[in-house]
């Protein structure tokens, strides 16, 4: 993790949206760029798992904490990581 970490411009918290980080373990080469720049430290490199190229790949450890800043998606140099954005439908109670 970067020592001089500066919080990137996080999008405003939106309770209606859920973010899911998807990682293609075959494409990932474990370069650690995503976890280095993640403001919430929710990605890690797996220590016991490896892909068919014998590379340890990135895994998500705290999926519920993702705020959707997409820093990891933009940084990923192997196009192996992206964020799936889903809207949570809430029943609006008028009472």
């Amino acid at each position: 993790m970067l020592k001089s970490k500066r919080t990137p411009i996080l999008p405003p918290p939106s309770p209606e949206k859920k973010y899911e980080i998807l990682i293609d373990s075959e494409q990932c080469d474990g370069c650690e760029l995503c976890l280095t720049f993640c403001p919430k430290d929710i990605i890690e490199i797996s220590e016991d798992k490896f892909n068919s190229r014998m590379l340890h790949y990135a895994i998500v450890i705290k999926p519920e904490e993702c705020a959707g800043c997409r820093q990891c998606e933009r940084l990923c140099p192997t196009v192996s990581l992206y964020i799936l954005e889903t809207e949570i439908k809430e029943v609006i109670n008028n009472e």
């Binding site: 998807l22 990682i23 293609d24 373990s25 790949y57 196009v79 990581l81």
Partner: peptide
């Protein structure tokens, strides 16, 4: 190693995958 794939490849729908 093939047992350890966390996400099936078809689940990967990276938005840029068609352009690269």
């Amino acid at each position: 190693p093939s047992d350890q794939i966390s996400i099936p490849p078809e689940a990967l729908g990276h938005p840029l995958i068609d352009m690269l």
